[in-house]
Computed example of a mutant assay.
Amino acid sequence: MNHELTGMFESVDRMSVEGFLSYLTDDVVFRFGNSPEVVGKEGVRAAIESFFTQIASLEHILQGVWSEANTTIMRFDTYYTQHDGTIINVPCCVVVHFNASRLINDYRIHIDISPLFSSASAGNVIQASA
């Protein structure tokens, strides 16, 4: 994974909204799972801040990366820690497109986060709360 993306995911895993936003263009198009597209940094800020209130922490473990021209595809295992301490593993794929200044102007997260909010997520639970 290139330097820009390594730093970006370190910011995400620290739940640093400002750090994450610094990698995006002002008019970025962002889509998380099956949620509607959000256009612009301020819309992304609101969406990410809202999502971060629903979890205690997260960690991305890179499983693969592919790049072609200005597009990079990454496959992750993402570990979400809920507020009660339960850790849920959810696989995801992220597709980003860079502009000429190497800022991301299109960001797509392909993920099903329903196990994070479902009592039927036993197959995804890594560590249950005590």
Rank of each mutant, 00 (worst) to 15 (best):
N70T: 04
T71C: 00
T71P: 01
T71Y: 06
T71I: 13
T71R: 14
T72W: 07
T72E: 06
T72P: 04
T72I: 11
T72M: 10
I73E: 02
I73H: 06
I73K: 06
M74T: 09
M74Y: 07
M74A: 12
R75W: 05
R75T: 09
R75A: 02
F76C: 07
F76G: 01
F76N: 03
F76K: 12
D77E: 14
D77A: 13
D77S: 10
D77C: 07
T78C: 13
T78Q: 10
Y79W: 08
Y79C: 01
Y79S: 00
Y79T: 07
Y79F: 15
Y80M: 05
Y80L: 10
Y80T: 01
Y80F: 15
Y80D: 02
Y80E: 09
T81D: 00
T81Q: 12
T81F: 02
T81M: 10
T81A: 05
Q82A: 06
Q82V: 03
Q82Y: 12
H83I: 07
H83R: 09
H83V: 00
D84M: 00
D84Q: 07
D84T: 08
D84E: 11
D84R: 10
G85D: 03
G85Y: 04
G85T: 01
G85S: 11
T86K: 11
T86H: 05
T86P: 09
I88S: 06
I88V: 15
N89F: 13
N89D: 04
N89C: 14
V90A: 00
V90G: 00
V90W: 11
V90P: 04
V90Y: 08
V90K: 03
P91F: 10
P91W: 00
P91V: 09
P91T: 03
P91M: 13
P91L: 08
C92M: 14
C92H: 07
C92F: 04
C93E: 13
C93P: 04
C93I: 15
V94E: 12
V94A: 07
V94N: 08
V95K: 09
V95G: 02
V95R: 12
V96A: 07
V96F: 11
V96T: 08
V96Y: 05
V96W: 03
H97W: 01
H97V: 02
H97A: 13
H97Y: 03
F98L: 13
F98T: 04
F98S: 01
F98Y: 12
N99P: 00
N99R: 04
